[in-house]
Design a protein around this nucleic acid. Structure first.
Length: 668
DNA sequence: AGCACGCCGACT
DNA sequence: GTCGGCGTGCTC
């Protein structure tokens, strides 16, 4: 019945789980020339006049659809933006996380920018309405004549061989700074990854480098500028405008590249993929905050299997997830040729003797070291939260001021503004103290908190520089200055810091999450690497095995011990988790449908705000496929028969959607 | 999401 | 008889 025309299978650009499969359409004769797999198309949906966007995925062999097919309405653009390998990745990644392929495709394919696309097509010698000619264009973009540098610091040829063989590595980064020929200073890790990527690109294959944030990205970009030609590098930047993003994306489509970007770069088109490099996979920024919440590490593992590229997890610390893969033999541990250990001095919290040190509650030994180091150059002070933002407290009884509506913490956006609640946003205009009913508050510094002002007072006459989320700073000069930075926001100092103080260790460890120790170790280690050769890093107020691990730089051993503990407790990443959130009955039904025997247990349902409940499922890796499959079916069922739910006063509202999230790092 | 289909109460 | 209310289900 569908004879006379090819049948195209189309993925609709829709967020609806029930539409997350391929739809068959006939391709009219006139569109055949442009209708290639991967192009954007417009197709009718249900009734004529309603047109949906989609991607042409493939041409169907037999017609497995019984009904009458509609015609593809139009080919939006002849550019095959959804490459076959990216489609395969999106499908598998979304299936494994009970999400929709579209959620992943949206990360993989940037919005179209028509002007950019026209310029790109013209440069490739393609007439806009004509067929793409993949063999043309790209003059001057090949790696011919490019000689990559040897990858330094590891056993000769070790990493080169891994790239050649498509091996999976857990690479222990070399913990020191290095100066690039241009005079910029970067972590040695950036040079290693840049050299590895250049090596891969030299053999006409794409290398994808994924970093957690723009600060790491800038270091790696600086290293790539030295070790690879500029035209080899395509940056996928969170700060790019849409046209810029689309331009970089099209570059990846035209020839092998070195793709550098944040977590979504893992989905960049790369027909001939030779290497995936993932820096600092323990950083939670690698975890996608949107459905289906996939971690770049997991997407990288899937892609590596599908395309057979080499995969390098590089870091100063070892995530428990990667350690697990090492212990399974799936990933191979590689250490630097020569052990380099930053000089780390655990300093117990002791009574400061100096008046200056007392002002900022810095142990006197640490204060003396820092004071001496400040004669020669910059000193880094890592704090949990710097700046001048102390908390509000009751003027009378000193109790911390809390929102009278929701008990959230009150804060000041600016020095003169009326305080607002950090949770509900309510303006605390007529605030009354819970405790003593006083109505006036004042700013006070809380217990362990230290302000830049206090720290500055501890080192009189020294220039103070603050670096945090609100005052981002990538680099500082080699001149004396006290650099106060939040964990994760430390600038790189030319030549390295002459001393580093890790001040708020105790406070950071006070967070009650399962992974707090791993996170702290990562924050401290990444900061310690910023020290000049031999310069001391003082870990204040923390002792025990964590301090020992940092001082001896035995990160793999730490991860191994910690993972053994998790196995005993059946906590992640020894097991996997999935949270199911939604209406009580929907969650219960979804959990009940998970195949018998695939779960370790189900925790919950626990009530959450907005009348939804959450159940946490624990299961072994071996059963993850079955769990995901059944949860995905539950999500589709829930979306299809979306009942209404009573909402007070006899009214009705739409039932909440059923949400599934695998391996939420914030849970537990 | 939209939009059509369908099966019970008040109307010319 | 039939107009239209919204619950239910489907989209190639």
């Amino acid at each position: 019945m569908n004879a006379g025309g090819r049948v195209a299978r189309v993925l609709l650009d829709s967020a609806l789980p029930q539409l997350d499969h391929l739809f068959d359409y006939r391709v009219p004769e006139a569109l055949l020339e442009d209708a290639h797999p991967g192009v954007r198309v417009k197709v009718p949906l249900r009734s004529a006049g309603r047109i949906a966007d989609g991607y042409l995925i493939e041409f169907a062999e037999g017609d497995d659809y019984e009904g009458v097919l509609s015609d593809v309405d139009a080919v939006t653009s002849p550019v095959p933006v959804l490459a076959p390998e990216v489609w395969a990745l999106a499908r598998r990644v979304s299936d494994r996380s009970a999400g929709t392929a579209n959620d992943v495709v949206r990360l993989a394919v940037p919005p179209r920018a028509v002007r950019v696309e026209k310029a790109w097509l013209a440069a490739r010698g393609v007439v806009p309405s004509g067929a793409t000619d993949a063999a043309s264009g790209d003059s001057g973009e090949s790696a011919d004549g490019f000689e990559p540098a040897a990858i330094r610091g590891y056993r000769d040829g070790r990493i080169e061989a891994a790239i050649e063989a498509g091996e999976r590595l857990a690479l222990q980064a070399i913990p020191r700074l290095a100066e690039l020929p241009g005079g910029a200073w970067v972590g040695e890790w950036a040079i290693t990854l840049a050299q590895a990527a250049a090596r891969c690109w030299a053999s006409a294959r794409t290398a994808i480098l994924v970093v957690p944030d723009y600060r790491d990205q800038d270091q790696l970009a600086a290293a790539l500028a030295v070790f690879a030609p500029a035209h080899a590098v395509a940056r996928v930047d969170a700060r790019q405008s849409n046209p810029e993003r689309y331009g970089a994306f099209l570059e990846c489509l035209s020839a092998p590249r070195i793709v550098l970007g944040n977590r979504s770069a893992i989905y960049a088109p790369a027909e001939n993929l030779g290497l995936i490099g993932l820096w600092d996979d323990g950083d939670p920024l690698h975890s996608e905050p949107l459905s289906p919440y996939v971690h770049a590490r997991d997407a990288a593992l899937v892609r590596q299997e599908q395309q057979g590229a080499a995969l390098i997890f590089a870091g100063h610390t070892r995530s428990l997830e990667v350690q697990r893969l090492v212990e399974l033999g799936w990933v191979h541990d590689v250490a630097p040729a020569r052990a380099i250990v930053p000089r780390i001095i655990p300093t117990a919290q002791q009574a400061p003797t100096s008046g200056f040190a007392q002002a900022a509650r810095i142990p006197s030994t640490a204060w003396r070291e820092a004071k001496a180091a400040l004669e020669n150059g910059p000193v880094l002070v890592q704090v949990a939260r710097p700046g001048y933002a102390p908390v509000l407290a009751c003027q009378n009884c000193k109790q911390a001021a809390r929102c009278n509506r929701c008990e959230g913490p009150l804060g000041l956006a600016t020095a003169t503004a009326t305080p607002t609640c950090g949770w509900c946003g309510a303006i605390a205009a007529d605030w009354v103290c819970d405790n003593c009913e006083h109505t006036q508050f004042r700013l006070v510094s809380i217990g362990a908190g230290r302000t830049a002002e206090e720290l500055g007072r501890a080192f009189p006459g020294v220039r103070v520089v603050v670096a945090d989320g609100e005052h981002p700073l990538l680099a500082v000069a080699a001149e004396p200055a006290l650099v106060i930075a939040t964990r994760g926001a430390e600038p790189v100092a030319a030549g390295g810091y002459r001393a580093i103080l890790l001040l708020d260790g105790e406070r950071m460890l006070a967070r009650e999450t399962l992974r707090v120790a791993d996170d702290c170790l990562r924050w401290w280690s990444n900061a310690a690497v910023l020290a000049a050769p031999g310069a001391p890093t003082m870990l204040v107020g923390v002792s025990g095995s964590l301090a020992q691990t940092l001082a001896t730089w035995q990160h793999a051993a730490y991860a191994s011990r910690e993972l053994a503990d998790r196995r005993e407790l059946r906590f992640p990443p020894a097991v996997r988790l999935a949270s199911v959130t939604g209406a009580t009955e929907a969650v219960a039904a979804a959990v009940a449908d998970v195949p018998q025997g695939s779960l370790v247990d189900a925790l919950g349902p626990a009530p959450l705000p907005d009348g939804v409940v959450r159940t946490i499922l624990r299961f072994d890796y071996a059963h993850a496929g079955a769990v995901a499959e059944s949860l995905r079916a539950a999500v589709i069922r829930n979306a299809t028969s979306r009942r209404r739910v009573p909402a007070g006063k006899g009214g009705y509202r739409a039932a909440p959607t059923l949400k599934v999230r695998f391996d939420d790092p914030e849970i537990l």
